[in-house]
């Protein structure tokens, strides 16, 4: 008959191994590129062409791109931020309609150069299937902004919620 200490020792090794495996598994699923969230469609290009006298130029919305994501090991969320040197014009983005149970759209996010990561889609359940959500960009320049082109690099990041 094996001594209890031997059993405990074996149990300890197994549990240690199991824990290490769990941690390794979690790390693997946490590495960018594994089950990657992707951006699809056409990168948004917005041209402001009309204005009504007395009001600001007419805002233009672009819905030609999407974010595709899936649930991770934990409850997760997607944040957004932008880099746009010498930004002149107002640009915001909000998630289009999301299938029930696949996350919740945050309020429209105003994209400002150098901003911190800001919640875009929250409460994405763990292990939810592949989900595609349209990105609704709206540009709303003002006459006082003048003319020109803003080029943003908009980054979406899926992180633990």
């Amino acid at each position: 008959m094996r001594p209890i200490s031997s059993i405990l020792e074996q149990f300890q090794r197994k549990s240690l191994l199991a824990l290490l495996l769990i941690c390794f598994g979690l790390m693997i699923t946490s590495v960018p590129g594994v089950h990657a969230q992707t951006l699809t469609g056409t990168a948004p290009t917005i041209n402001i062409a009309t204005a009504v006298a007395g009001s600001e130029p007419t805002p233009v919305t672009n819905t030609g791109s999407n974010v595709k994501y899936s649930g991770k090991t934990f409850l997760s969320k997607i944040t957004v931020k932008t880099v746009c040197a010498n930004q002149k014009f107002d640009l915001s983005v909000v998630a289009g309609s999301i299938t029930a149970g696949r996350g919740t759209a945050a309020a429209a996010v105003v994209l400002l150069n150098g901003m911190l990561d800001t919640d875009f889609i929250v409460s994405i359940p763990a292990n939810v299937g592949s989900t595609t959500v349209s990105l609704r960009y709206t540009a709303a320049p003002q006459f006082s902004d003048g003319t020109g082109t803003d080029t943003h690099t908009v980054t979406y990041t899926q992180v633990a919620n």
Binding site: H35, A36, P44, I48, F89, T147, G148, Q158
Partner: peptide, 17 residues
């Protein structure tokens, strides 16, 4: 924990109005 990240360009052009 960072699961994934992706970026794209977004352009806003305003001509003379």
């Amino acid at each position: 924990c960072l699961f994934a990240q992706a970026s794209h360009a977004a352009k806003v052009t305003v001509p003379n109005l």
